[in-house]
């Protein structure tokens, strides 16, 4: 089963995704995508680490080129999150850049999917604040939207988190 978990900031999507993955077969890999730059970032990573500490995940960090990631064994993978992965591919050094970001992220998820029996992917809803952003940001929004749409079409299940409540979008 492949599940896409989507929601805005602080809506409880990580907790939900972790709970979902934590009852799936071991080994359970948590693929972290956040490239830390600041103290705030490190605190956020620490918070997430503590949150999943007792849930039996093996953490693997991967900031770009998800396609090249090799899982040691077949099991469950939780990828968090596509918002960061897409930003890394677009903006970070070593990323695929504007022309390659969409393919890098989607082919990365497909490669991951081929290596596990259960997959949970967390993504972000960044589409509903009604703000018109500068071109660079707008490109990011467009690419992330395309990634989300592709994966939602492909996966068996898509769940939106609202105030901690899971709402089925596709099941």
């Amino acid at each position: 089963m492949r599940t896409l978990v989507i929601g805005g900031a602080a809506c409880g999507k990580s907790e939900y995704a972790e709970a979902l993955a934590a009852v799936q077969p071991e080994p359970r890999y948590y693929i972290a995508t956040m490239m830390p730059f600041s103290r705030e970032d490190y605190l956020r990573i620490e918070k997430h680490r503590l949150q999943r500490a007792e849930k039996g995940f093996i953490t693997m960090e991967r900031f770009t080129d998800l396609k090249g990631l090799v899982l040691p064994q077949r099991g469950t993978a939780l990828l968090e999150c596509l918002g960061n992965l897409t930003a890394n591919e677009l903006f970070a050094e070593g990323g695929a850049g504007e022309d390659g970001a969409y393919d890098a992220v989607t082919s990365g998820v497909l490669a991951l999917e081929a290596q596990c029996s259960e997959l949970v992917v967390v993504t972000n809803d960044v589409f509903c604040d009604g703000v018109r952003y500068p071109l660079e940001t707008q490109r990011y929004i467009d690419i992330l939207a395309r990634v989300n749409n592709t994966l939602a079409a492909r996966f068996e299940r898509t769940v939106e988190l609202v105030c901690g409540i899971p709402l089925p979008v596709k099941s």
Binding site: G83, V126, V131
Partner: peptide, 12 residues
């Protein structure tokens, strides 16, 4: 209001 569904704000 639901306020979380936008791009991460630049301001801390």
């Amino acid at each position: 209001n639901e306020v979380g569904s936008g791009v991460v704000p630049a301001e801390k």
